[in-house]
């Protein structure tokens, strides 16, 4: 019995004016799968995952998340956003609220949870990302790595089925990358469906079911990490790997 994929992207095209940013992209993600999307900058990887929670709109093709078609219908978009959590490169924590308030905001206002319940959930997830003691601090008082972990907890508090990561460690100082990656690995081990755009190939090797290589708006190659790193099929993939794995 194969379950239908939790994310279905079928022949999606997108243009920014005349610039063709996504070219006939198709991708299927099963529940519990961990996908790493890699590629040079400008290849459309961020645009693709931002289409999954409709932060960007695709122009052609079909995207379905957990059976819900993504169209202009606002109600469906809201449903999808409740099921999909996102972690941004710039963290985007709300600076005028405490860490705890950041995490309880959406559960209270979107899922209409009572405050006590939301706070209990938030503390649980803050413990999961290993910074429960920072609950009453403001984002400005935390380090980059701590802020990103709070961002992960904030997304988890909505109990999403899918987590999207848009270059979560690219804005971090090197010594803080590990703490965030550890949290993401923990999430993966708990069975969360994850799509990560990242340059961290070590993470891909450890956790990904599939690595998807995008270049110039199209999916060039996808394969399990072992195969992807040792025996890439396309010339473009080989060139890319040579670049990033050097040094």
């Amino acid at each position: 019995m194969t379950k239908s994929p939790i994310i279905e992207i079928a022949h999606v095209d997108k243009w920014y004016g005349d610039f063709h940013v996504l070219k006939d992209v198709s991708l299927s993600v099963a529940e519990g799968e961990r996908i790493v999307i890699a590629g040079p900058s400008g290849s459309g990887k961020s645009t693709l995952i931002r289409c999954i929670n409709r932060l960007e709109a695709h122009d052609k093709g079909r995207i379905a998340v957990d059976g819900i078609e993504l169209t202009e219908d606002l109600k469906r978009i809201d449903e999808v956003r409740r099921e999909v959590g996102m972690v941004f490169q710039q963290f985007n924590l709300f600076p005028h609220m405490t860490v705890l308030e950041n995490c309880t905001l959406a559960p209270i206002w979107v899922r209409k949870q009572p405050q006590e319940e939301a706070e209990a959930t938030a503390m649980r997830f803050l413990e999961r990302v290993r910074i429960p003691e920072q609950a009453l601090k403001y984002p400005g008082q935390l380090s980059g790595g701590q802020q990103q972990r709070v961002a992960i907890a904030r997304a988890l508090c909505m109990n999403p089925k899918i987590m999207l990561f848009d270059e979560p460690t690219s804005a971090l100082d090197p010594e803080m990358i590990k703490e965030v990656l550890d949290v993401m690995v923990g999430l993966a081990n708990d069975g969360m469906t994850m799509i990560c755009v990242t340059h961290e190939m070590g993470f891909a090797r450890e956790v990904a079911n599939r690595v998807v290589f995008m270049d110039q708006g199209e999916i060039v190659e996808e394969a399990p990490p072992a195969e992807f790193f040792t025996a890439p099929k396309s010339e473009r993939t080989k060139a890319f790997l040579a670049q990033i794995l050097r040094g």
Binding site: D13, K14, W15, Y16, G17, D18, H20, D59, K60
Partner: peptide, 10 residues
């Protein structure tokens, strides 16, 4: 390549 807007079905 033609602009995307025309390719989108109305």
């Amino acid at each position: 390549m033609a602009g995307g807007k025309q390719a989108t079905a109305k």
